[in-house]
Design a protein around this nucleic acid. Structure first.
Lengths: 170, 170
DNA sequence: ACCCACATGTAATGGGTTACATGATTTA
DNA sequence: TAAATCATGTAACCCATTACATGTGGGT
């Protein structure tokens, strides 16, 4: 058993941050923070209090390395992946057990308790939710060819589950 | 503005716990804990350290009330919803803004970074993930007519997204 | 001049995880 | 009788949220 396999596994936040750095090249914690904040998912808050300490942790674990960048008056720090960081990122990314997990869905949770709604509440709830989902957050702005289709596919899938469920139990 | 609208909103854990109590009638924290633990989603850990303190919080907020139950030698406490608890539960359950949110999905997160995988890693990852999803957790055992279909529907749709994505970008 | 975006961080607080501690009852 | 399940809880630790603090640079 080598050293890396003894390391405790990355959290989803940490793994995603490493993946962003791998995609974007050297970047500031601010960019990472904004990437989370701009995510269509409310799960990723992108708060400074979460991101800056996490970067410190990742640096302490030597998965990223920083250098100061003083091209202008602004105090910037740029972080890049170390070799160990890339290995850890790959292990996180390719973790099929994690990937297969259900995660958390606020709609799914509520639909499991649909019997607690009256007929009218049910109608209103399903209608409103569908509206809000159809006018949901826009696809992220990127050049990568798979990102927008994935966003669309996922949004559509959730709307379709809601439609199918409504037909049966609405 | 009345008193309840000033209360800070329930977390998903708290809302779900109230919904379980509403569905099951008076129940022990142990039952609540097990309900979370048996959830197909890894998001709901169902740890004692999360559930017991939460019940204490909900009782302090007078959303639930407890009475001792000493029918046998075991020290049991049973909690039931108060009127305020039912109101709070309904507000949580019918929150369409929350319901429409993306939540968190470990597969979606990883697919957004598919370009960081080599062709072979991609094949292996997509294949393994699909297998694990198809042999996923069984539908919860219940008499409620909508629960099993919802579980099936959700699992199937998620597998279909993976299939569609694989066809385009695998 | 003023505001917004860029940019970095910390302090207090809240709450979840892991591990521990205890004891009764059921099942193999 | 030994193990698993029922049943309740706490303590130490970790980490995310909210709010605060500070300062630069660009646009109107």
């Amino acid at each position: 058993m080598n050293r890396t396999s003894k390391q405790k596994p990355l959290t989803e936040l940490e793994g995603t941050a490493l993946a962003i750095m791998s995609r974007e090249g050297p970047c500031t914690p601010y960019l990472i923070k904004e990437a989370f904040r701009n995510s269509p998912s409310e799960y990723w808050s992108g708060s400074a209090g979460a991101v800056y300490p996490m970067m410190k942790r990742l640096e302490a674990r030597k998965l990223i390395a920083s250098r100061a960048d003083e091209t202008d008056g602004r105090a910037r720090r740029e972080f890049s992946l170390t070799a160990a960081g890339k290995t850890a990122m790959k292990a996180w990314l390719l973790n099929a057990d994690r990937a297969a997990g259900f995660g958390f869905d606020p709609l799914r949770t509520r639909l499991f308790f649909i019997e607690l709604m009256t007929a009218e509440e049910r109608r209103t709830f399903l209608g409103k939710t569908r509206e809000k989902m159809q006018g949901g957050p826009p696809a992220p702005d990127t050049d990568l060819p798979h990102v927008k289709p994935l966003h669309t596919l996922w949004s559509q899938y959730r709307i379709n589950v809601l439609k199918a469920f409504t037909k049966k139990f609405g």
